[in-house]
């Protein structure tokens, strides 16, 4: 294939997109306390620091707990919303769906502050629970987007066929609907998990002393001597994210292939 101007542009654009995450492993293995060029030499010291940092592991545990809970709850909420919006017409549908999808565009700072002021006003103690409450709000729109496309590709006559062949509403759900949307649900869980793990603003302002990983990282970036360790941590996180995303994409595509629908592209 000949390299057209447009393709060259696309490649430059990809370099721009990947520059920060490509540099991560370079600095992570760089034998210098300063994150700058030229590179000094190879070391695994920063990874050892990551391994030995007890605070970091506590943050990882907190983050995993929050991400698991948030992704399961957000996906559950999204199943209701996606099913309702793809299958039924009802008054107020546009407004309610708009509200549910709002966190996708609403600046997260405004959302976090609004929730924070109300929670403090009600005398609620900040904890991992309040963080989870916020993360659910943030993850749900993405989960709804993924699950809507999964439910959308379900032909209504498939359900009717199941009824016609003698099944009731519950058996129809687990014999026909669930098997067909399962890939969408898995993909939604993985994406929500990734978003929750990565989220900073809500985690920072709705969180307590129990820091999440993103908050811990943000705090450490203030100290220049911690930065190389964070680079090593970042490299690990990037690798993990790619694995999770590849899995999510695999399940999403399998779902589409299963229902025989056409692939309409990415997650969003």
């Amino acid at each position: 294939m000949r390299i057209s101007g447009l393709k060259l542009y696309a490649i430059v654009f990809l370099i721009f997109l990947y520059a920060p995450i490509v540099l991560l492993p370079m600095f992570a293995f760089n034998n210098s306390t300063v994150v700058s060029f030229p590179l000094k030499g190879f070391t695994t010291q920063w990874f050892q620091n990551v391994w030995n940092d007890a605070d970091l592991w506590q943050a990882v545990r907190n983050s995993l707990l929050v991400a698991c809970t948030s992704s399961v709850l957000a996906t559950s909420f999204a199943i209701f919303a996606a099913r309702a919006s793809t299958r039924y017409n009802f008054p107020g549908k546009g407004g309610l769906m708009g509200l549910i999808m709002l966190p996708m565009v609403l600046p997260d700072m405004i959302m976090a502050m609004a929730l924070l002021v109300v929670l403090l006003g009600l005398g609620v103690q900040l904890s991992l629970v309040t963080v989870i409450m916020g993360h659910i709000l943030i993850c749900t729109p993405f989960a709804v987007a993924i699950l809507s496309s999964a439910f959308q590709s379900l032909d209504k006559s498939l359900e009717e066929a199941a009824y016609d062949l003698g099944e009731g509403p519950i058996s129809t759900f687990y014999l026909v609907i669930l098997p067909l949307v399962t890939p969408g649900i898995i993909s939604s869980l993985l994406i929500s998990f990734t978003i929750s793990l990565d989220e900073f603003v809500v985690s920072n302002f709705l969180g307590s002393k129990d820091k999440l990983l993103s908050v811990y990282i943000f705090g450490q970036l203030r100290f220049p001597k911690s930065v190389p360790t964070i680079m090593a941590l970042g490299a690990v996180l990037v690798a993990l994210s790619i694995v999770l995303l590849a899995l999510a994409e695999y399940f999403r595509r399998r779902g589409i292939a299963k229902t025989g629908a056409k692939d309409t592209g990415g997650f969003l």
Binding site: I21, E199, G234, L245
Partner: peptide
């Protein structure tokens, strides 16, 4: 997929990397 990957990876670190 290639375009979405960077979006999902460690926002805070990604922003910080622009200093580097």
């Amino acid at each position: 997929f290639l375009i979405t990957i960077p979006f999902w990876t460690s926002y805070v670190i990604r922003v910080f990397m622009w200093n580097a």
